[in-house]
């Protein structure tokens, strides 16, 4: 009886299945298969010419060596700092400009979006040009002013904070753009009602903009958490993971293990851990959102 029902549903919706089939097949081949392949690979060691099954030894290595643990800590630190900053400032900037004259909104959007459309490589080179303590722009001006040169890229206390700032400036444009688009779509009557009731700008933020842009916040959280976790180019070009692994992230170490040390087993294990961390973050965000929605109901 149940089989009959499934057949009936399939027959009824066959066009829909046909349209989604290419995506399903392609994602199975290029996403699901690599994920499974990566997991299987993480259980092997191929450094010495043959694939030797080592069970979870690659994972044990990751959780027992300081360098790997430091890279996990750094990656989580970046996600925990960059993503909230992007959401908070994205909301604040978008909330401040969305109801201004269109020309002004466009101008701000263009200025903030330029770093997003410029290649990460170019942006990293520009930052290097500014910050380099020997040949950089800051060094030039400090020299002209007779001041001491500051080497922030080599400073073990500040390099990671600097990285947070750079990632923030590179991605804030994307968040502002999404929030502005969402806020422009909010009914003007709601905003007018808030004003008529004597609500301040903060009240508008608190009771209209933040609640109504929640879907955008979830989207920003998921995409930016995933992108920040995969940060590579900036580190490769600015700090190369240094000084002394202080800015080494999981993605950077994955690359080093796979392409510099030929340890594809360990590299795959790092990849699997990154996948699990992303999955956890997304699941956590969805659960908390669902709870908030249920509370509101």
């Amino acid at each position: 009886m149940e089989v009959f029902s499934i057949n009936k549903t399939l027959k009824k919706n066959w066009q829909a299945y046909l349209f989604t089939a290419p995506f399903v097949v392609l994602s199975a081949v290029f996403m699901v298969y690599p994920i499974f392949g990566g997991f299987v690979n993480s259980l092997y060691n191929s450094k010495w010419g043959s694939n030797v099954f080592v069970g979870f030894a690659n994972y044990a290595k990751i959780f027992s060596k300081d360098i790997y643990l430091l890279s996990i800590r750094n990656s989580l630190f970046l996600v925990a700092t960059v993503v909230p900053l992007l959401i908070v400032f994205g909301l604040l900037i978008a909330g401040s400009i969305f109801d201004k004259v269109p020309a002004y909104v466009s101008g701000v959007r263009i200025c903030l979006y330029i770093p997003v459309i410029i290649s990460m490589v170019v942006m990293s080179i520009i930052w290097r040009f500014i910050l380099d303590s020997q040949t950089g722009l800051i060094r030039y001006f400090t020299m002209q002013l007779g001041l001491e040169s500051v080497d922030v890229l080599s400073n073990i206390k500040w390099t990671l904070i600097l990285l947070v700032f750079i990632l923030f400036t590179m991605n804030i444009g994307q968040c502002v753009l999404l929030y502005v688009a969402d806020m422009i779509g909010i009914s003007k009557e709601l905003i007018e009602a808030c004003r008529i009731d004597g609500g301040s700008r903060w009240h508008m933020f608190r009771y209209i903009l933040i609640p109504l842009t929640k879907p955008t916040t979830v989207f920003v959280f998921i995409t930016q958490a995933s992108a920040t976790l995969k940060t590579f180019i900036v580190i490769q070009l600015l700090t190369k993971g240094g000084p002394n692994f202080k800015t080494t992230t999981m993605m950077f170490l994955l690359y080093q293990e796979a392409f510099e040390n030929s340890n594809t087993g360990v590299a795959s294990a790092i990849g699997v851990l990154m996948f699990l961390i992303s999955l956890l973050l997304v699941t956590f965000r969805f659960i908390s959102l669902r709870r908030e929605e249920n509370k509101a109901k």
Binding site: A28, V32, Y33, V40, W48, G49, S50
Partner: peptide, 26 residues
């Protein structure tokens, strides 16, 4: 479509060769 999925899943289950050619013959 069904064949496509079966092939994909079968590929997922593939285990790396115990011994890669270059190293062994090397």
């Amino acid at each position: 479509l069904a064949c496509g999925f079966v092939v994909t899943l079968a590929a997922c289950a593939a285990v790396p060769e115990e011994s890669s050619e270059p190293a062994a013959s090397g």
